[in-house]
Design a protein around this nucleic acid. Structure first.
Lengths: 188, 188, 188, 188
DNA sequence: GATGAATGAGTTTTCATTCAT
DNA sequence: TATGAATGAAAACTCATTCAT
């Protein structure tokens, strides 16, 4: 990738780091400019407003996350493996891309305008997997959105506590355990 | 309880409602005063700062939540029933005390200073239940904090989607389903 | 003196201490009440306003200072001794009544309304002494207010530096030295 | 010097005028902005806080004062002349740069944080002169800081009364008289 | 006399956004 | 494109004073 001609990426990188750590509201444009090594005015050359910047970053990262998960699912042979890969991918992403993950979660839960939240792509992906499993008869019948919510909740909360150092288990064991639990939740 | 002599409760009530709806950062002292029907200065007679007010409200509500759950567990006869009651209590609280619940969750996840977040009493309650079940041999052996995280996550995420209208299932059925799922997660 | 029935003296004592340390403007009624162990409202039972309190304290202390100096001059036998006693009294007062002295000086120089500052009684006392000395022919002819200003300035500035620990001489030596110097300034 | 690109000097000029007239505490940022013809926010682009602004102005003016005095001492031929020039310079500065002088004095005496008050350059200059005179044997032996304090006090107090219209002598005569008196104070 | 909660006008400070360069 | 000083509206917070108890 060639050296970008504009400073747009600098803005995005800096904003992501700060949004994630302190939230959107609590992050000032001044802080973003400072961290990006640019001037405040430059932000407005690339984005209409701070809100716009945040939304843009959110969508970009959600997309990135989604592609990351897709990569994880590529080589799976059956639905159960898909679910396992989904869980593993979720955890891996949260670990490797801490800033992106942190931002997605916090923005999703409180800070963004409703319309941006609608398309929680990874959740849709999970829903598909579960639907497939139900069709195949290996997952038990239950409302798909409910099931997705429960699985995602299990994963996310675990990550949350893991991050806050409140779970004293080795990382790989945690993934294994959560994966098994999620399977138990949805299988017959 | 007699009519209070100060307007402290007015401040707290107004702040809770606003914090919950828009978050702490996005709620202004002006809005709080307006809603409470008092002057801004009055807020500062009772609390050092907005942050102080938020923390105070958080702790009070967490405590309230905890007592609410304790009430639910009172008449349980065995560990399994305790877990069921815990789940049901969680859901009931989130429905009956929407504002309190919403505020607790959002404050816990992003807005409060670390030290206030540490003491998540309901989670400790769940941990106790799980430990008991493991001793009795009805729950399978697994790290307690991990198990708690997963169960709480399952519950909270479901509530989150339920609130956003993305789960098209009847409320009671959801509770039943989630309860069953949680049992599945931890039982042998 | 019997135990006073009101808390007026408590207010005065507390206010004096605070005014002197931080200035009138920077002292809040809240701080005064706190230090006096009374409520803010009580201040207004005894004084019209904070300004009124300050002025009242100023005048009271100035008077006190003046009487203190008069006591020092009582047993002097001639004009030169009077001047010596004046210098010594000034120093003694600043040492024994640090809070009173400090407040008088700072209020006099910046914080009070003009009209309160007019009557700088100790300076008038000095003027009298100098006039006497000139009549007797032992002090040289010079404008009286100018001479008073210089003598008072010499004394006050010395005290100021003494207080700030910037003069490394023994206290009694300082008084002796300043006394001599003041005599040199005005004598023929 | 070219027209400055920022309004920093406008802020400083306005603040100096107001600080001097009413003191730091009693001067509002609103008043500063109004007088400077800028918005309040602009003040904070250039200074961290009002206190910071005041300290900055204090140091700048003290430096200015010091350079002014140095200019006065340039063409002196001996120590006695130096002392005369010091006195004359002090008076001249207080008359020509009334605002600066007034601000330096009041800030020095009560309003600034201790650390800013420590470095009273002009007094150090005087101390040097006195030390020189003692070495040469024309000034009598006495503690240097004490001697400086007395001389500075004599000068400052005279200026203070002069300003308040309480000395009815012609300005030049006052300087002459004070100069002579100061010499008397320190000479053998 | 004494209280202290409440006031409200005022203070300092913040910050997203604009605009001349 | 990029800058960064300037803006101004709004934020958090302060405090002398009042008043019902």
């Amino acid at each position: 990738m060639a050296r970008p001609l504009t400073k747009k990426t600098d803005v995005i990188d800096a904003a992501l780091a700060l949004f994630m750590r302190k939230g959107i509201k609590a992050t000032t444009t001044r802080a973003i400019a400072l961290r990006a090594g640019i001037s405040e005015g430059t932000i407005y050359r690339h984005f209409h407003s701070k809100e716009d910047l945040a939304e843009s970053i959110f969508e970009h990262n959600l997309d990135y996350f989604w592609k990351y998960l897709k990569g994880y699912l590529k080589n799976t042979k059956n639905t159960e493996e898909m679910l396992q890969a989904f869980v593993a991918g979720f955890f891996e992403f949260s670990r490797r891309e801490q800033r992106r993950y942190g931002f997605i979660i916090s923005a999703h839960q409180t800070e963004l305008k409703r319309h941006s939240r609608e398309k929680m792509k990874p959740k849709q992906m999970l829903t598909k997997i579960l639907r497939l499993g139900q069709k195949e008869g290996i997952f038990r019948k239950m409302d798909l959105s409910l099931a997705s919510a429960m699985v995602i909740g299990t994963i996310m909360q675990t990550i949350f506590y893991l991050k806050n150092g409140r779970i004293a288990v080795n990382y790989d064991d945690v993934i294994k355990e959560v994966t098994q639990t999620c399977l138990k939740m949805v299988k017959k």
